[in-house]
């Protein structure tokens, strides 16, 4: 039995879990808009979120039950984050930051679920946030909101973000490019951080798990050694459990900081 599992799993390299596979092939004007496994797991994540918040708000009581408590803690956590970083202007951004935080959090955690054994490759567990196009799109939405809101609120004074008042004129040619590069690097660091963390964590997890199967398959004394990568993969999984929440939090807090910059650009 172990031999069969070994043979079927040896083919699956550590990168195989990131493959995009179409489930329902669709094209629109020459563009490939197939419903893929990535789309499937996004849908599962959003579906779970909607189901959870429906269950949590169905019976609203003064003294909350378990699900209502969790929903209230999540709400309070993000509301405090928005209020502390953006200030009184922040309230209108709460829906965006909350949606972003919950989407990334659930996508990260759903990606940690084990695949159903023997199921076709198309529906194996997939972490949508391990693809840079997804995280970069989320980062670009944040930066677009910062730009649109920044110009709408401050007008041309938004450029004060790049040239703070009181700056000596001879320093301008050095400091303005530095500030511009610093601003342009925001969506990149925002997108790359989440993507790289998810990608690296899942590769390491798969490698360690692969070692266990390989050592068990070797038999004899080597099988005893399998305990080491097994314990290792448990440790990595616990770390990933932490990183999943941490990266959603970092993404949300940085979104708040950038929005706060846009809201207060004229004060610089």
């Amino acid at each position: 039995m172990i031999d069969a599992a070994f043979r079927s799993l040896r083919a699956a390299g550590p990168m195989e879990q990131f493959e995009i596979l179409p489930i329902v092939p669709l094209t629109l004007g020459g563009l490939d808009i197939s419903f893929t496994n990535s789309a499937l797991w996004m849908t599962i994540g959003v579906g779970l979120t909607i189901a959870f918040f429906y269950a949590a708000t169905r019976r609203r009581t003064l003294i909350p039950g378990r699900t209502q408590s969790i929903a209230e803690i999540l709400h309070e956590f993000v509301a405090n984050l928005v209020r502390d970083t953006i200030g009184h202007d922040g309230k209108k951004f709460f829906p965006y930051v909350f949606t972003l935080f919950i989407f990334i959090l659930v996508a990260n955690y759903v990606g940690l679920l084990p695949s159903i054994p023997g199921s076709p490759h198309e529906i194996h567990t997939f972490t949508t946030t391990s693809h840079i196009i997804v995280t970069f799109a989320l980062a670009m939405v944040t930066i677009s909101i910062v730009l649109i809101y920044g110009f709408a609120k401050n007008g041309l004074k938004f450029f004060k973000l790049f040239a703070p008042s009181g700056l000596p004129i001879w320093l301008m040619p050095i400091l303005v490019p530095i500030e511009v590069i610093s601003f342009l690097s925001r969506p990149i660091s925002l997108g790359v951080r989440l993507f790289a963390n998810m990608l690296a964590g899942h590769i390491i997890l798969k490698l360690f798990a692969g070692f266990v199967i390989a050592l068990l398959g070797a038999g004899g004394f080597a099988s005893v050694l399998a305990i080491a990568p097994f314990l290792g993969s448990i440790a990595i999984f616990l770390l990933e459990f932490l990183v999943a929440a941490l990266q959603a939090y970092v993404f949300a807090i940085l979104t708040c900081i950038y929005l706060s910059d846009a809201a207060h650009a004229a004060d610089h």
Binding site: S189, V192, V250
Partner: peptide, 19 residues
């Protein structure tokens, strides 16, 4: 602290890349 460490590395690298 772990989150901060991840952040510092990516901020430095992203700015260098953009420049």
């Amino acid at each position: 602290a772990l989150g901060r460490a991840f952040r510092v590395g990516s901020e430095l690298l992203a700015a260098l890349l953009v420049g």
